[in-house]
């Protein structure tokens, strides 16, 4: 039995199924409960309804915090994409050993545990008067998301044929035009990918936001956090589903962008 291919095939099948259940079941259950007709968290739900979504969109606490999250996410993701792409371009053309050091510094917010970043930024931003302001949260989110853009775009630039840009320059294109017409279209899938990453990270971010937000300026994740710790009803499942679907959409958009550019979805 130990040697039979059937036994090993079966075992692998069981492992695969268990993995899918472990990773997906919690999310599926949240998804189903968010459409529950019951007044409390129960599974399977006795019937289906949209009452929790209705409740979510009619409750100013949830709509306000959702809008705050978007107001942080959009500028933060755009800024991180512009700064990260610019830095990736400059680093890819630098030949000195400084390039490695600068890259390490720019990647640091990804490596340093986020609780440290959160505490440090909170301490300093309070002194600078940025605590509890939208600007403070946007700045903090740019710092947290910039490394994702930098590493995605850098990975693309590493396989980018620089001679294409040189060819454009030799044909008389000024640097900006060569970049705009040759380099950017070629690296745009990774820039897109980096921006989607930045959006998802920002929208889902909790730890730094927990420190920097006040009841007046509060992203939806912080509101969720304080509700989970109190009493929970299926509205939270509806919010969680919205957050999850947002991530899933971004993941799909990323997949489409990669497929269009003819690259395999990377690991």
């Amino acid at each position: 039995m130990f040697y039979s291919a059937k036994f090993w095939g079966g075992l692998r099948g069981i492992i695969n199924v268990m993995l899918v259940v472990y990773m997906l079941a919690p999310l599926v259950i949240i998804f189903v409960i968010s459409f529950s007709s019951a007044l409390y968290l129960t599974f399977p739900p006795p019937g289906l309804s949209l009452q929790w979504y209705e409740k979510m969109f009619s409750n100013p606490t949830w709509t306000r915090t959702l809008v705050t999250s978007l107001k942080i996410m959009v500028p933060a993701a755009i800024a991180a994409t512009v700064l990260g792409t610019a830095a990736a371009l400059a680093l890819s053309r630098m030949e000195s050993k400084w390039a490695l050091a600068v890259r390490a510094v720019l990647m640091a917010p990804l490596v340093v545990p986020v609780i440290i970043t959160a505490a440090a930024i909170f301490g300093v931003f309070r002194i600078w008067g940025l605590y509890g302001s939208l600007w403070g949260l946007i700045l903090a989110h740019v710092i947290l998301t910039l490394p994702y853009v930098l590493s995605t775009v850098s990975a693309n630039l590493a396989v980018f044929d620089k001679r294409l840009e040189d060819a454009a320059a030799n044909c008389g294109a000024p640097p900006w035009i060569a970049f705009r017409r040759v380099t950017l279209p070629l690296i745009s899938p990774s820039v897109m990918s980096g921006m989607l990453f930045a959006m998802v990270i920002s929208f889902d971010e909790l730890v730094v936001s927990l420190f920097l937000s006040t009841p007046r300026v509060r992203p939806v994740t912080v509101q969720m956090w304080s509700n989970i710790k109190g009493d929970t009803d299926p509205t939270i499942a509806a919010i969680a589903t919205v957050l999850f679907l947002f991530s899933l959409l971004a993941l799909l958009a990323d997949g489409i962008a990669r497929r269009r550019s003819g690259r395999e979805p990377g690991l």
Binding site: L19, M23, L27, W225, I228, T232, A240, L243, F244, L248
Partner: peptide, 22 residues
């Protein structure tokens, strides 16, 4: 399987922890 394992990269920790609580 790759997609399934990658899901944690893309979903909020808060959402998943809440799901476990439920």
């Amino acid at each position: 399987l790759i997609f399934v394992v990658l899901i944690p990269f893309w979903t909020s920790i808060l959402v998943r922890s809440f799901a476990w609580l439920v």
